[in-house]
Simulated assay, not measured.
Amino acid sequence: MATRKLKRAGVSDDMCEQLKRHRIESCKDLLSLGPLEVMHAAGLSFRRASELLQTVSRAVVPPVTTALELWRQHSCFSTSLPALDRVLRGGLPRGTLTEVTGPSGCGKTQMCLMLSVLATLPQSLGGQDSGVIYIDTESAFSAERLVEIAQSRFPDHFGCREKVLQMAGRVHLFRALTCRNVLNRLDRLEEDIISTGAGLVILDSVASVVRKEFDTTLPGNLMHRSNMLGHEASTLKYLAHQFNIPVVLTNQITTHVGGQGSEGDSWFVTAALGNTWSHSVNTRLIVQYVDDRRRQILIAKSPVAPFAVLNYTVEKQGICMDGEDGQEVLYEGTDPGLQPIRVQTGFNFNLTKPMEWTEQTEQ
């Protein structure tokens, strides 16, 4: 809450400009100062400076909410996949972080593109009639594929060029190819959500730039990486809650050594970024290979859903489930940060050098 911009806390535009000259832009910036410091920065009397601090303080205090109010407000963002929506009790929960993790080629970006189309649809068709903010850290976004999914999945609605252009114009793409780019974008994300009318935020992927820039074998890098990821998670959680919208993240895979995988080996593939990150997301969906064509979605972590698995394929119209009754609880679950993930077979890999195999699967 304290990261909220001062303008959204009831501070006038003139006062925001005055404080910005002293690098005071968020509620946190202001509340970290004493009345005398605020007097100097804002050019106010002691009494007015104290009143300003009290006004901003009240604006960021989380309101008391009853369970009944939460129950009435509960809503989800439908994925247009009835089987998945049924397991998740309605779809992707608003106001929280949902992560999709798995090996390359399983359809993580395809899922993000499909959700982007869905968010722009009118409410009569199950959409949100809203904009989308899509932060791309891997240069994987394809406007052509976005249009193809829209026209193939909803041919009646997107039968005319005008509707296609309207949909594409509501998906706002930001390319962030470094950690600094990502942090700068997140710092401005609150204003972006308001200006674009966004009802969905996508970060594809959260791991890409972090793993490129932080060599965790070097002293101090692991701590810096954890601090950055913690900042990203807290910012996104605040925005998801503040605007009551779903935030979707994609993640990569890594090799975990020293445990027991699903095949009884001493190493196995699992989600990247470690256990601390896995507990930062509210819902984790794991995508993995079944064979050359079929894939699976595992609900590995959810406050409402059971540990379940659903089969799917990636088609011209995006993600397609194998039938309506495909869900079944197939495993008892484990720590979401250590859930083994099946990758594509057929690679030439050396069991004595698992990290080399991991690099192949992540490319």
Rank of each mutant, 00 (worst) to 15 (best):
C16Y: 02
A41Q: 02
A272V: 02
Q339P: 05
H231M: 01
E17V: 02
T250Y: 14
P306F: 14
N251Y: 08
C16M: 06
Y312A: 11
E263H: 08
G107S: 14
Q123I: 08
Q363S: 12
A272L: 08
W71L: 11
S26A: 03
R47S: 07
E213P: 00
I297F: 12
P62T: 09
T361E: 15
G261L: 03
Y331G: 05
H256V: 13
L81H: 09
T283D: 06
S262Q: 11
I194D: 14
S142P: 06
M321I: 04
Q166R: 09
T313Y: 03
V269D: 10
M1A: 03
T79C: 13
G159S: 12
Q151M: 15
V281Q: 04
Q110D: 14
A9D: 00
I286P: 09
G43T: 04
G10R: 12
V287G: 06
Q252W: 09
A272Y: 02
E148T: 09
D29V: 00
G197P: 07
K28S: 03
T137S: 13
G274K: 12
Q128H: 02
G43L: 11
H241A: 04
Q166E: 15
T79D: 15
V61Y: 08
C16G: 01
T101L: 15
G264C: 10
L173D: 03
G91V: 05
F268D: 13
A2H: 02
V164M: 10
Q363L: 15
K301S: 04
C76T: 10
T216P: 01
K7N: 04
Q327F: 03
D13C: 00
C320G: 00
F174H: 14
S45I: 03
Q151A: 12
P93D: 12
G131P: 13
Q363M: 15
E315Q: 05
D129V: 00
R294F: 15
A233N: 03
L189V: 03
S195I: 04
F174A: 13
M167F: 09
V87S: 10
S124G: 12
T65Q: 10
F174T: 13
L222N: 01
N221M: 11
W357V: 00
A49H: 07
I286L: 15
V210D: 01
E190R: 04
R180N: 03
M39D: 02
K212M: 07
V60D: 09
Q344F: 11
P340S: 01
E37I: 00
P354I: 05
C179H: 03
L92C: 05
L285H: 14
N244A: 07
P340E: 06
A308F: 02
M114E: 15
K353S: 08
T361L: 15
G274A: 09
C112Y: 15
P336D: 06
V248F: 11
C320L: 10
I133D: 13
E144C: 11
P306A: 09
W277S: 00
T283L: 03
N221G: 01
P155D: 14
L177R: 09
R188I: 05
S124D: 10
S205D: 11
E144A: 09
A119L: 08
T178K: 07
P155T: 03
L229S: 04
